Amino acid sequence: MNGLFDTHCHLVSDSYQDEDINNILEEAKLIGVNLICNVGYDLKTSKLAVDQAFSSPDVFAAVGIHPNDVSNHQEHHLYELEELIKTGSVCAIGEIGLDYYRNQDSSDLQKEWFIKQIKLAKKYQLPILVHIRDAFDDAYEILKQYDVVGIMHCFSANTKTANKFIELGYYISFSGILTFENAKDLQQVAKDIPLNKIVLETDAPYLTPVPYRGTKNYPKNIIFTAKKLASLKKISLNDVIITTTNNAKRILGINLKCKIKKDTYIKNKLC
Results as ranks from 00 to 15, higher is better:
D18P: 03
D18G: 05
D18T: 09
E19I: 13
D20N: 15
D20A: 13
N22Y: 15
N22C: 15
L25G: 05
A28V: 12
A28F: 12
K29A: 02
L30V: 13
L30P: 03
I31P: 00
G32K: 12
V33K: 03
L35V: 04
L35M: 14
C37W: 13
V39N: 03
V39C: 05
G40C: 10
Y41H: 09
Y41W: 12
D42H: 08
L43Y: 08
L43S: 04
L43N: 06
L43W: 08
T45L: 15
T45F: 15
S46G: 08
S46Y: 11
L48Q: 06
A49L: 07
V50S: 00
V50Y: 01
D51M: 14
D51E: 13
A53T: 04
A53M: 09
A53K: 04
F54E: 08
F54A: 14
P57D: 06
D58H: 15
V59K: 06
F60M: 01
A61N: 00
A61G: 01
A61D: 02
A62C: 09
G64N: 03
G64P: 10
I65A: 04
I65Q: 03
I65L: 11
H66Y: 08
P67L: 06
N68E: 11
D69G: 13
S71G: 07
N72T: 07
H73Q: 01
E75Y: 15
H76F: 13
H76S: 12
H76N: 13
E80A: 02
L81W: 02
L81E: 01
L81M: 07
E83I: 14
L84A: 02
L84Q: 01
I85F: 05
I85M: 00
K86F: 00
S89F: 14
V90G: 00
C91Y: 11
I93L: 05
I93F: 11
I93E: 01
I96V: 07
G97Q: 02
L98C: 04
Y101I: 02
Y101W: 11
S107H: 10
S107Q: 09
L109A: 02
L109Q: 04
I115A: 10
K116Q: 07
K116D: 10
Q117K: 04
K119M: 08
A121C: 03
K122M: 06
K123H: 01
Q125K: 13
P127D: 07
P127L: 13
I128N: 08
I128D: 05
I128M: 09
L129R: 08
L129K: 07
V130Q: 13
V130F: 15
V130E: 12
I132D: 12
R133L: 13
R133Q: 06
D138Q: 11
D138F: 07
A139E: 01
Y140I: 09
E141N: 14
E141P: 02
I142H: 04
I142A: 01
K144E: 03
K144S: 09
Q145M: 08
Y146V: 03
V148E: 02
V149Y: 15
G150E: 05
M152G: 04
M152S: 14
C154V: 11
